[in-house]
Structure formats: C-alpha cells, structure tokens
Simulated scan of single mutants.
Amino acid sequence: MIKEIRAKKILSNLKNPDPWFGIKYNMNLYRGCEHGCIYCDSRSQCYQIDNFDIIHVKINALELLKKELSSKREKGTVGTGSMSDPYIPIEKELRLTREALKVIASYYFPVHVITKSDLVVRDKDILQDINRIYGAVSFTITTCDDDLAKKIEPRAPSPSSRYRAMEILAEAGIYTGLTMMPILPFIEDDEENIRCIVEKAAAHGAKYIIPSFGMTLRDKQRAYYYKQLDRLFPELRRKYEVKYGNQYICSVNNAHKLIGKFKELCNRYNIKIVMDKYHGDNSEQLSLF
C-alpha cells in the first residue's frame, strides 16, 4: 500500500559525521520499505512506524530539500538508506530519489547512498556529477546465496544483481563498496559466507566493506524476526532465546575468528574496512576494530 504524506523536514542533522558512513545530513524520502527484510531494525518501536510495510511517500520532499540545502552553512555528506531503501520498487515509477539527487548535485553537496537495489544504476549519470565532489554507493550484502537472500530479503534484488550493479558503478568511476550487515547468527555466520562476500566484492570493484558481525534485536523488531524464524528456520528461535535473551546487540558465533578471517581476506584483496569519507575540514578516519 502506498500513501502520500507531507513532511515537516527532510534532512536530519547529525552533530558530527558518523564514524562508519561519514553522513552529516540524513535523508529519508520514503517511510517504510517494500523489500520485506526479516531482520530490519527499522521495525523497532523507537522509530514509531506502525506498519513498516505501508510506504509513505513524502510528496513535498524536493521542495523541502531545496530549502534546507540552501540554508546549510556547513557542507557535509547527505546520506540516504538508513531507515528506508531509496531504491524500493516504487522508486522506479516515482523517481523521487533521482530528482533528489539532482537537487543535491545542484547545491554541490556530497552523497552516500546505501541500498539493496540495482536500480541505483539508473542514476549513474547524476552520481558521476556528484562524484566530482564526493559520491559513494554502498550495497548491503549479507550473503552470496541468492536462494537464502530470497528468504531473508524476499522482495529485494538478488545479491548477484547487486554485485553486477556495483561493477557498473565502479567502472564508471563511482566510489562503491559494501555494507556487510547484519550477519545473522546461526544463518550467515560461517567462514565460507564471509569469504564468498569478500571475494565477490573484490571481483566486482568494491573499494571497501563496512562490516558488523551480528544483528540488533529489540521489541517489535524481535517479535517480527522470531515470527519469520518460526516460518523459515523453525529450529532457530530457541537458540536465539537461549543465547541472547533480551539483548539488543547480538554478536555472531565465533565473532573473533570471523573478524580475523574477514580482515585477512580484505588485506589480501586490498579492500579497506573503513571507507574514505568526504573530508571537509576533518580528514580523520576511525577504525571499527
């Protein structure tokens, strides 16, 4: 279901650019998501989205974006994709993300797009324009197995499609890599999966991989995830309950070993584990480990 809404503002300011993604201004053009990922943290109660599967389109987003960018005294990276994927299927018709990127380009702001969709390739021309200042596209990939991805991310394009899109953008000179998160305990936390993700990333032009070896689980998000586990992996819910209880941060099994293997592979393929960010007045980078 699609609903139109009018937003009060479109950019949320971060006091300091976040150390993982370098984002200073966060932009969500849509509220809710069509991809149906079983693990999505945005289902949590704190985000106050009653039904995450209903898509709310912010019909005044472009008007607000122009007004807000024109008033910004500090240039910083505009990030999109943290709460709702900017390239959900309805974007193919509405083209709201494409038009927003045009606005951002016209004000000479840097951009970091995070997505699970190969639709981002459509906007390669605008991203190349933005990239004269700074433009990054991160594809979220947590498994190389298209069949497994179809279960846990049922309406998102396959990992294979995302890798192909990454290669196209990389060949166009756009800074691109992966957000390898979440890694689902008991489902994706094995060395073979990590090896496959890194090797395919290297083969398709990734310059960086931002990892998180685990997942979050809280309130409504946990309830939804466990319901999906009961349907898809009925033997796993009890393992989660025993191991994690009511924990919010749920680290994978053998995290230390997997992190070591991940770093070894990234070093072998010359892939960074901290992305280069828009410098502005601060060129400091922080280590994740």
Rank of each mutant, 00 (worst) to 15 (best):
A255N: 07
T179G: 03
E188S: 14
Y225N: 06
G214L: 05
E235K: 13
Y244A: 03
R195M: 06
G177T: 04
G214S: 06
R164W: 10
E192F: 12
L169W: 08
P185C: 12
D219V: 10
L184H: 11
Y226N: 04
S212K: 09
A172N: 09
K243Y: 01
D230G: 15
Q221E: 15
G173S: 02
Y208P: 01
R155V: 07
V252M: 05
F262A: 01
L217W: 03
H204G: 02
F213E: 00
K261G: 01
S161L: 12
Y225M: 14
K263G: 04
A201I: 13
R222Y: 09
I197G: 11
I183K: 00
N246A: 13
L236M: 06
M180A: 03
F186K: 09
I210M: 08
L236F: 04
L178Y: 02
P157H: 08
R218G: 08
V198N: 00
I259K: 00
F186M: 07
G214D: 01
G173P: 03
A156S: 14
P185N: 12
V252G: 00
K227A: 15
T176F: 08
L236G: 04
Y240S: 02
A255H: 08
S251N: 09
D219E: 15
G177C: 08
I197M: 10
P154H: 03
L229C: 06
E191V: 13
K200E: 14
L169V: 12
I249E: 11
T216K: 15
